[in-house]
């Protein structure tokens, strides 16, 4: 629920409110991670490392529902809708373009909410391993979650063998989004 700019506010103020949006969204990903069966059996260190490398990607999946690829608009939870052009003033044009493309591809798969949630769990445990200590434990958790996702999707669409592979193909897209855009700058006012 992000109160991004009514026209009257400066782009700096827009930037601040946009930056503020991320804080609650990140906290929700942390809570989501703790609810993933098996996540809290990982070491605390590895939980933190996975969250640090995977949260941006999970957010990208979560934000997809805000994007309307046909209309090229973004509707925040408070109901405010913004065209891509108006949001370009935030200087996040390239990220927004990438988000529209990604949400179009993911949206076309027509996942149910529970399938999307399980996919987000897979996204998180598939994140970069560079800081992970017990790689085996993370790989085992990832394997379990992928198996659960596959059986959920194939049980609902027994005659569609393409959906699951298409879904897994979104993982590299998310990695690219992360590598290209997680260094975007946010600004916070300190009074």
């Amino acid at each position: 629920s992000c109160p991004v700019a009514p026209a009257s506010r400066s782009s700096q103020e827009v930037w601040e409110s946009f930056s503020q949006c991320f804080t609650p969204a990140v906290k929700e990903v942390v809570e989501f991670a703790k609810s993933i069966p098996g996540f809290q059996t990982l070491s605390q260190h590895d939980q933190v490392m996975l969250l640090k490398s995977g949260t941006f990607q999970v957010l990208m999946v979560r934000f997809c529902s805000l994007f309307d690829p046909k209309e090229r608009t973004v509707t925040f939870l408070n109901g405010q809708t913004y065209s891509l052009a108006s949001l370009r003033a935030l200087g996040m044009g390239s990220l927004l373009d990438a988000m529209f493309d990604f949400s179009e591809k993911l949206g076309s798969l027509g996942l149910e909410p529970d399938e999307m949630a399980l996919f987000m769990a897979v996204v998180l445990v598939s994140a970069d391993r560079s800081g992970i200590v017990e790689v085996g434990a993370v790989e085992q958790l990832q394997e379990n979650l992928i198996r659960a996702l596959r059986s959920l999707i194939t049980s609902r669409r027994p005659d569609d063998s393409t959906l699951f592979p298409k879904l897994l193909l979104r993982l590299p897209d998310l990695r690219t989004l992360n590598n290209q855009h997680s260094d975007k700058l946010l600004a916070f006012r300190i009074d």
């Binding site: 640090k52 949260t55 941006f56 997680s182 946010l186 916070f188 006012r189 300190i190």
Partner: peptide, 25 residues
Amino acid sequence: PKTHRVMTLADHISHIITQDFARNQ
């Protein structure tokens, strides 16, 4: 004058996660 703290999205995310786990220790 208003001062600003500027950080990358990745650093902001890391900061929140570190805070959360520190608080819940």
